[in-house]
C-alpha cells in the first residue's frame, strides 16, 4: 500500500516485532504527516528503539511499514558502536557517509545545525556532548534526508544543550520541512516541541497532541506508575 504522497510520509499498520521469541511490539498502527514532529515515549523496554530499527528495516517484523517513495531517512542512533576517543576527526566522521562532499556542501549541513567549520579537523573526543549530538544530526542530514529519526536526542548532555538540540530540530522542521521522529524521556521538551506523541508500551497506548496526552492518568497508564517526569509550560 502506498503512503498518501500529499500527506503521510509514513504509514505503519499492524506492526509486530518479535525478538528472541519475545513479543516486543504488538499490533501497532500509526501515521506520520510530512513535516510533522512525532515523539515516541514509553518506559524502558517498551520497544521504542526496536520500533526505530523496524522503521529503518534492520530487523524482521510483520505488518506493513510504508514510507513515501521520496523518503530519505537520516538515522541518529542512541549509542555509537565505537569509542569516541579514536583518532577520527569530525571531518572523517562526516565524510564517512559521503566522501565526495565538497567543503561548501559540508558547510551547508554544518550551518543547518549551527556547528562551526572550525571543529572539522578536531578529533571526535574533543567535542562537547551537545556538539557531538549536533555532529550526529549533521551526519544524519547528509544526503538531503527529509526524515530524521533521532533516538534519545538529549541522552547524556546538559540542559542548555538539550534545549539547543530541540531548537535545531524545530528549525529543520520549520525551514526545511524535515519530518522528525524522536524517542524521548523528557516530557517537558516533548510538550513544547512535538506535534504529536505516540505512547508505547509494547502496543501503542495513546496517540495525539502532547497536551491531550500529557495528563497524569494517561501517563500513569503508559509508565505503569508515577515514574515519569512531567512539567507544564505556559506559552506566552
Amino acid at each position: 500500500m502506498a503512503a498518501n504522497k500529499n500527506k503521510n510520509i509514513l504509514q505503519v499498520e499492524k506492526l509486530s516485532v518479535r525478538l528472541s521469541q519475545e513479543l516486543i511490539i504488538e499490533d501497532l498502527s500509526f501515521c506520520v504527516d510530512r513535516g510533522e514532529h512525532l515523539t515516541i515515549i514509553g518506559p524502558n523496554g517498551s520497544g521504542k528503539t526496536t520500533l526505530f530499527k523496524a522503521l529503518i528495516g534492520v530487523i524482521p517484523y510483520t505488518g506493513t511499514i510504508t514510507w513515501a517513495s521520496d523518503t530519505v531517512i537520516g538515522y541518529v542512533p542512541q549509542k555509537l558502536d565505537i569509542d569516541r576517543n579514536l583518532p577520527l576527526s569530525l571531518n572523517d566522521f562526516l565524510q564517512s557517509k559521503n566522501y565526495h562532499l565538497k567543503p561548501t556542501d559540508l558547510k551547508k549541513y554544518l550551518d543547518l545545525v549551527h556547528l562551526s567549520e572550525r571543529l572539522l579537523p578536531k578529533p571526535l573526543g574533543f567535542l562537547s556532548g551537545g556538539e557531538f549530538q549536533r555532529a550526529m544530526m549533521t551526519l544524519a542530514l547528509i544526503g538531503d534526508s527529509n526524515v530524521l529519526l533521532f533516538d534519545e536526542p538529549t541522552a547524556g548532555i546538559d540542559e542548555p544543550s538539550e534545549e539547543e538540540i530541540y531548537e535545531t530540530m524545530h528549525r529543520l522542521q520549520a525551514e526545511k520541512g524535515v519530518t522528525i521522529i524522536t524517542i524521548s524521556h523528557d516530557l517537558s521538551l516533548v510538550n513544547r516541541y512535538a506535534d504529536n506523541v505516540l505512547c508505547l508500551n509494547r502496543r501503542g497506548l495513546c496517540y495525539g497532541h502532547p497536551h491531550e496526552i500529557a495528563n497524569p492518568s494517561t501517563l500513569a497508564k503508559v509508565f505503569g506508575t508515577k515514574r515519569y517526569k512531567h512539567y507544564d509550560h505556559t506559552h506566552g
Binding site: 529503518i56 534492520v58 558502536d81 551526519l139 544524519a140
Partner: peptide, 17 residues
C-alpha cells in the same frame, strides 16, 4: 576507508546509508 568508518560508527546508520 570511509565505508569502513561508517560501518564502525553504527551498523544501523550504515544500513540507512
Amino acid at each position: 576507508r570511509h565505508a569502513l568508518v561508517l560501518s564502525l560508527i553504527s551498523k544501523d546508520l550504515a544500513k540507512t546509508a
